[in-house]
């Protein structure tokens, strides 16, 4: 009986494990409106879709003052609320202090007008599926992130930090502290709550991309906001805007930002 040598056996085994020539036809089939609905599946979905749609009209919480993004030069109190909710949710998720939170004003698509908020209002304000991400940055990097937001948009909505710009547009002096007024240690490593969009490089805050140990929570910002509204209503509280004062930017500085003349 023929006994293959060890080398031959190995070669045979390798051959048998190698992929063949799978030169197959392949294509992408876009699922467009020309494809009719499946009646059996649609029969299941229809009542659930109606239920979901009805839930959009559900009342959430009273917001007597509304939460507004602010016009140019005004503070974005809606954004501050979103950043606060992000930071709180991040702390709850990772179970450790999260010192700073930042989102992007461009991602907040509408104001929350005064009155009774409905689920649809949160969806309109936050239509994206952006998720909460927690990363680690040094204090120096947090300062740089805030500065980049100021130069680009007059300050992206943040939580945990206060920023002031002194000096002139030609020679700006950035003064940043933690929210309680204490100094930011440039060497200290802190946790930062942000979105997968910003961490991925969206909206040009490049230093955020340096975030280390990223933790993708799987929680959408919108769901966080819905949950927060529901929690307030359950506690019989109103949704009120956070206090202003996180960004203090004099008019000449604001004008320089508008004219894209403010440099770091």
């Amino acid at each position: 009986m023929f006994k293959p040598s060890c080398a031959l056996l190995c070669a045979l085994l390798t051959l048998s494990l190698a992929a063949q020539a799978p030169l197959g036809k392949a294509q992408v089939l876009p699922l467009g409106s020309t494809i009719p609905d499946d009646p059996a599946i649609q029969k299941v979905i229809d009542p659930l879709a109606a239920e979901i749609k009805a839930s959009f009209d559900l009342p959430l919480v009273q917001a007597p003052q509304g939460l507004l993004r602010g016009r140019r030069g005004e503070e974005n109190l809606l954004g501050y609320w979103v950043a606060d909710v992000m930071r709180t949710a991040a702390q709850g998720t990772v179970g450790k202090p999260v010192r700073f939170g930042i989102t992007n004003a461009g991602g907040l698509r509408s104001n929350l007008r005064p009155g009774l908020l409905k689920v649809a209002d949160i969806f309109e304000m936050m239509p994206f599926e952006n998720e909460l991400v927690v990363v680690e940055l040094t204090g120096a990097e947090v300062i740089q992130v805030v500065k980049e937001g100021i130069v680009r948009r007059g300050g992206e909505p943040c939580s945990g930090v206060k920023a002031r710009v002194d000096g002139s547009p030609e020679q700006p002096v950035f003064v940043l502290t933690w929210e309680d007024g204490s100094a930011i240690d440039p060497a200290e490593t802190v946790r930062v709550a942000t979105t997968d969009y910003l961490y991925g490089g969206g909206d040009s805050i490049p230093t955020l991309r340096k975030g280390r140990k990223p933790f993708t929570t799987g929680i959408t910002l919108r769901q966080m906001l819905l949950d927060q509204c529901a929690a307030l209503a359950k506690a019989k509280q109103e949704l009120l805007p956070p206090a202003p004062g996180r960004y203090t930017l004099p008019v000449p500085i604001l004008e320089a930002i508008r004219d894209k003349k403010l440099k770091l």
Binding site: T14, L15, A18, A19, Q20, A21, P22, L23, G24, K25, A26, Q27, V28, L29, P30, L31
Partner: peptide, 23 residues
């Protein structure tokens, strides 16, 4: 691959597309 080749496919997200490969 050393023998043949492997087809690597992915079709976006959200059920926008259905991928098809025939062998």
């Amino acid at each position: 691959q050393a023998q043949g080749e492997t087809l690597v496919f992915q079709v976006g997200f959200g059920g926008v597309n259905l991928g098809r490969m025939d062998f």
